[in-house]
Every structure is written in structure tokens, then in C-alpha cells.
């Protein structure tokens, strides 16, 4: 699994049936990349539904959330509609799991992504990563702490200039 300080591997994946999203498209923003095993897990403890409620708190730190799993673009569309998700879900579908493999979070045996989080800074460098047990929704305290420490560091550097 990739860790702090490593360059985030590029991706170019379907986010909707007719639109692709590249990591490069998000340059200048911080990116929260949330790998998860599958669409349509049970509702109340559902990680993506939970993050959907937190977008405005992420945006306070100039961070955009992107979900990613091996489900197809059509499956993602149905899932996003059912849960009224307001952030993109990327289909790591063809070749299956290639991006998850690049980030070191593909579960070969299950044929799906691990539940893993990455916070990537404005320059495309990984600043924080976390692997959660598949059955445990990791919440977002780690994400928020990582974003906050990035903002603190930035303030310090600006102050020195």
C-alpha cells in the first residue's frame, strides 16, 4: 500500500456512463480517494452515504472526495441515484482493479478493492493513507486530521515567506 510522501499514481476512469475523470483534472485541489469493496452495502453503516453528508466539511479544506471500486459505471450510477450521492464514483473496471493495484489496495482473492483511504495534496503527493478492516467503516476522523495538518503546515510555510 502506498504511503505518505509517494506520488499518487495517475488514473483516468469512468465517473459516469459518458464522462471520465483524471487525477490531473483535480490538480490544485486536495483529493480524498476512498477505495471501497462494493456498491450497495447495507445502508445505515454505509461508508459512502456517511461521507456524502460530510462533503461540506471536506470542502472547507479545499478537498474533493472521490469514491472508487471495481463496480461498473452503470452500477455506480444506480448506486449514486439510490443513495443521492453528490460526489463521483470511479469504475476501476477495465482492466479490473488496475488502479487499486497501483495504490497497493487490491484484494486478489475477493476480486475487489480493500477499504482504504488516501489524502492527496495539491501537487499529487500522498499525504496520508489508511487501510481499514473490510468490515469496519473507518469514519472520517483520520481524513479530517490529515486535512487539518496539511492546512496548518501550509500556514506555517506561508508565514516564513
Amino acid at each position: 500500500m502506498l504511503e505518505k510522501g509517494q506520488q499518487a499514481p495517475a488514473f483516468d476512469l469512468f465517473a459516469t456512463p459518458d464522462q471520465r475523470l483524471k487525477l490531473k483534472d483535480l490538480q490544485g485541489k486536495r483529493v480524498i480517494l476512498a477505495f471501497y469493496p462494493a456498491d450497495f452495502s447495507p445502508v445505515c453503516g454505509d461508508q459512502m452515504s456517511l461521507y456524502n453528508e460530510m462533503l461540506k466539511y471536506f470542502r472547507k479544506y479545499n478537498a474533493e472526495l472521490v469514491g472508487i471500486s471495481v463496480d461498473s459505471k452503470w452500477c455506480h450510477m444506480a448506486y449514486a441515484q439510490e443513495r443521492t450521492l453528490h460526489f463521483p464514483l470511479l469504475a476501476d473496471f477495465q482492466p479490473k482493479g488496475a488502479i487499486a493495484q497501483a495504490y497497493g489496495v487490491y484484494n486478489e482473492q475477493e476480486g475487489q478493492c480493500e477499504r482504504a483511504l488516501f489524502v492527496i495534496d495539491e501537487q499529487g503527493t500522498i499525504q496520508w493513507s489508511y487501510l481499514s478492516p473490510t468490515a469496519v467503516n473507518p469514519g472520517a476522523d483520520g481524513i479530517l486530521d490529515a486535512l487539518e495538518s496539511l492546512s496548518d503546515n501550509k500556514q506555517k510555510t506561508t508565514a516564513h515567506v
Binding site: C44, Q47, M54, Y57, V136, N137, G139, L144
Partner: peptide, 11 residues
């Protein structure tokens, strides 16, 4: 709500 996120509320 924000305190919940910070406290690791996951559902």
C-alpha cells in the same frame, strides 16, 4: 455533526 466526524462516528 462536525464533532461527530472528529470523534470517529461511523454510523
Amino acid at each position: 455533526f462536525e464533532s461527530g466526524i472528529r470523534s470517529g462516528v461511523n454510523g
